[in-house]
Design a binder for these strands. Structure first.
Lengths: 145, 145
DNA sequence: CTAGTTGCAAAGAGTTTGCATGGCG
DNA sequence: CGCCATGCAAACTCTTTGCAACTAG
């Protein structure tokens, strides 16, 4: 196993925040407000440094936010399919992340390698869109008007 | 047809810059240095405002940069497959953009709709990775060491 | 003990905004 | 000549960095 460095309270709190948001991504601002709520007032720089380290270790995934002006983070799965080997879809409305870890994924990867000569980097690529729940909700709200 | 607003020299110069880089994406910094080289010293804010307008009109695509800390832009194709209806792959090394506008794309979109209940937003999603040329070059350079 | 980690403050990149001026149509 | 676009400067957001103080192992 790799050495994960010192075990500080700040680092633990950041990982707890990520764990409690497994299904979606969090921003640095999200983490900071979570920490403040829970009594651990880690410094902004500390959060950035830990996230950078965790991302380098492959423990967390780092994606661009949908507006392209910042990053959001998510704990990589520990069990089951490796998050570095499939694409992720994120709903722009509710924030939910869908792991594209089905058989089709292999076909996609293979197709893109063979026909387009391109090897994808899954760890930092994310596709934005809208999930079915939000689409339904959006169309209902439209009707309400 | 939609009204594209006034035809200013700044706007034209920005579009020329985008045209000359059809195969890849450019950042605001790229555009500014292009403009300076070509004698048109448009203001930073003007470039941002024009790009925002062009993106809203669907004339340009806006993607996050690979480090997730800024945006890069590309002219949407005028002929052939609509760029808002397929995915884009971008090589992190050479910057080349590959349009995923083959039959497989429809299968992908259909699969994701049916099996994952998700409708993708192609206009602002991009997958980073490495193209075959750069991969070969990288492995050659490794050998040289 | 001592090397890795944190906090603080300042700096740096990228982007937006308000307002007066300028120029397209 | 009216309205939209531009330039300028300031403000804002997100992120990084240098350095002294702290602390896990």
């Amino acid at each position: 196993m790799r050495s994960d460095g010192y075990q500080t309270s700040q680092r633990q709190a950041i990982i707890i925040c990520l764990s409690e948001n497994e299904g979606s991504t969090v921003t640095v601002a999200d983490i900071l407000s979570f920490l403040r709520k829970n009594g651990n007032k880690a410094n902004r720089a500390t959060v950035y440094r830990n996230l950078e380290r965790l991302a380098a270790e492959g423990v967390v995934l780092r994606f661009p936010t949908s507006d392209g002006q910042g990053s959001c983070f998510q704990l990589a799965r520990l069990d089951g399919p490796d998050c570095h080997e499939h694409l992720h879809l994120k709903c722009s409305l509710c924030g939910k992340v869908i792991h594209l870890d089905c058989d089709f994924m292999e076909k996609l990867e293979h197709h893109i390698e063979e026909n387009h000569g391109f090897s994808m980097n899954f760890g930092n690529s994310i596709i934005y869109g809208v999930c079915s729940e939000c689409r339904q909700r959006a169309s209902l709200e439209k009707k309400d008007k």
